[in-house]
Design a protein around this nucleic acid. Structure first.
Lengths: 105, 105
DNA sequence: GACTATATGTAGTCCGTCTACATAACAAGT
DNA sequence: ACTTGTTATGTAGACGGACTACATATAGTC
């Protein structure tokens, strides 16, 4: 599965990843690839704009760091982000119930 | 849950409903409301354009009928639609696994 | 006669996600 | 030195799904 098919769950996936600890964009992409058992492989053009959107919304905070010449923008989830994650998880669970009911299993 | 939150699953929901038997737009809306335990309440502005899109794609076929002065456009799922439904169900299951893995339950 | 439910549809908008591209430093191999 | 692959961040432009609000019309009920 490439980025097609995440259907509005992108923010929730990113926030859930950041809840495990702060990370920069590229690390989020690889973390999601690993946690999903190689099923998710998000393109940078999807993740980086999403992080900026989340930062504008106050759900994550970003800061620049240096690591042996490489600049990284490291993001951490905020309190608002944790709230948003809970909401995202809830609406995901509701969707899951509805889909299960309609699809039958 | 209103239509927010179905996130790309609209076609799958409609096709799954039509698999149980042909139906017109309004009946699809009420069927989804009932099957979802009143959680789903899709606006007509979401469902009717979706049905036309599905018809253009060849996933459903529609025909006009009359029932005591009321005109209805009754849709049936096609063979292509059944294939599309299987694909939709598969990608849904994949998404569900990924979300479960990342969210941790 | 008024209101609710049934029934279909359009117009215009918003925004998430995509593809493709641009940039750059470090690491390893030849 | 050169090339290739990995790490790393980002923009531009486009597409399309879903939304809100509106328009229309019949049937049934109070």
């Amino acid at each position: 599965m490439d980025a097609d098919g995440i259907h509005g769950q992108l923010d929730t996936l990113i926030l859930a990843t950041l809840k495990r600890g702060e990370a920069h964009g590229y690390a989020i992409i690889t973390a999601l690839r690993e946690h999903s058992g190689e099923r998710l492989d998000l393109p940078s053009g999807t993740v980086y704009p999403a992080l900026r959107r989340l930062e504008r919304a106050g759900h994550v905070s970003g800061k620049w760091t240096q690591s042996s010449g490489r600049r990284r923008r490291v993001y951490a989830i905020t309190d608002d982000g944790l709230t948003a994650l809970d909401k995202g998880r809830q609406s995901w669970l509701t969707l899951r119930e509805v889909m299960t009911a309609v699809l039958g299993t």
